[in-house]
């Protein structure tokens, strides 16, 4: 029987004999869903499930030991009206994001530009510079960092060689957050690799045309490299900002989980951790997590909205 006869004039008996839509979909798509299953289980079990639970818990008072008590929006109201530590942690995190992201991106771009000059042994340098990104967020590096920046650490010993008596970078609230910012900049490898790939995409003849026009290296950088790199800058900025908002381990290790001195390293995530696992206020911690998600979401949406004014896509 041809497809045409089935479509048009097939008797009802024959049509009834054809498989139902659902079973046909199942037959056609089952292998696809089967392959998808491991991820789907993980996504629902480890991402969607906890998210929905945490959203529910954010409207409750929950200490892990007794059942959650529904408190409505109390957690959110308290956060914005009656929690100085919330504002402190938000301010510390914002400061960290505002300074660490641009500095890290600028440093990553500078190194990428150096590596883009066709130097010998490029793969080796690329791997070496990427190494801190792999190690950077680890506990071991944070501990090492704490040693290096301690009052009698390596940094101060080096400074002493040139006659400068350095402060205790970690225990002085004036410098402690900057130490974390420097640690974050040190992990420039990932955006650097992406910048390097972006730089390689810019056709050489654009620079040649500019040099024939008499454009200096700086003008070429400002007028050609940066604008053509904006899609990559945009991508790196979004990713690094989200990472910065989520930053936890270095502050936790360096401040010993306290966010001290004088809450100067009390990252938002650290405060959230304290509320959840030190004070067992799971409901409140969940509300904090949702506010962080909202802040990151608003920032990302704002970035996408403004991108049409400053990100140049070739095609």
């Amino acid at each position: 029987m041809t497809a045409r006869s089935l479509q048009s004039g097939a008797p009802a008996r024959e049509r009834a004999a054809t498989p139902s839509t659902w079973s046909r979909i199942w037959q056609n798509d089952a292998p696809g869903y089967l392959f998808l299953l491991p991820w789907l289980i993980g996504f629902i079990g480890l991402t969607v499930g906890p998210m929905v639970t945490s959203l529910y818990l954010s409207f409750t008072d929950f200490d892990l030991l007794t059942s959650p008590d529904w408190v409505g929006a109390d957690n959110y109201i308290r956060m914005f009206t009656n929690d100085a530590k919330f504002w402190t942690s938000m301010r510390v995190t914002m400061f960290f994001v505002i300074f660490s992201v641009p500095l890290k991106l600028a440093f990553a771009l500078a190194v990428a530009m150096l590596l883009n000059r066709g130097i010998r042994g490029l793969p080796l340098y690329r791997a070496l510079f990427y190494l801190p990104s792999l190690l950077g967020a680890s506990v071991a590096i944070a501990i090492l960092w704490r040693q290096i920046f301690a009052g009698d650490g390596l940094v101060n010993k080096l400074l002493l060689l040139v006659g400068i008596e350095g402060p205790s970078w970690i225990s002085n609230p004036q410098y402690s957050l900057w130490t974390l910012i420097v640690l974050s900049i040190w992990q420039f490898g990932s955006p650097m690799i992406i910048f390097l790939a972006g730089l390689r995409q810019i056709p050489t003849d654009m620079y040649e045309a500019a040099s024939l026009d008499g454009a200096s290296k700086w003008r070429q950088f400002v007028k050609i490299t940066l604008p053509l790199l904006t899609p990559v800058v945009f991508f790196n900025a979004i990713i690094q900002t989200i990472e910065a908002f989520k930053s936890f381990t270095p502050a936790f290790i360096i401040s010993g989980g306290t966010g001290n001195p004088i809450n100067s390293t009390l990252f938002y995530t650290l405060y959230l951790y304290q509320e959840a696992f030190a004070f067992f206020r799971m409901g409140y911690a969940s509300a904090l997590a949702w506010v962080l998600l909202a802040v990151v979401g608003v920032f990302t949406a704002f970035s996408f909205f403004t991108s049409k004014y400053w990100v140049h896509y070739d095609e």
Binding site: P203, D205, M206, E208, A209, S211, L212, D213, G214, A215, K223, I224, P227, L228, T230, H312, D314
Partner: peptide, 20 residues
């Protein structure tokens, strides 16, 4: 003498127009 001071203009195969 640097390229810019030779009084030369060049049209490239790829046109080399600045896309932005």
């Amino acid at each position: 003498v640097p390229a810019a001071r030779r009084g030369i203009a060049m049209v490239f195969q790829s046109y080399a127009l600045y896309p932005h």
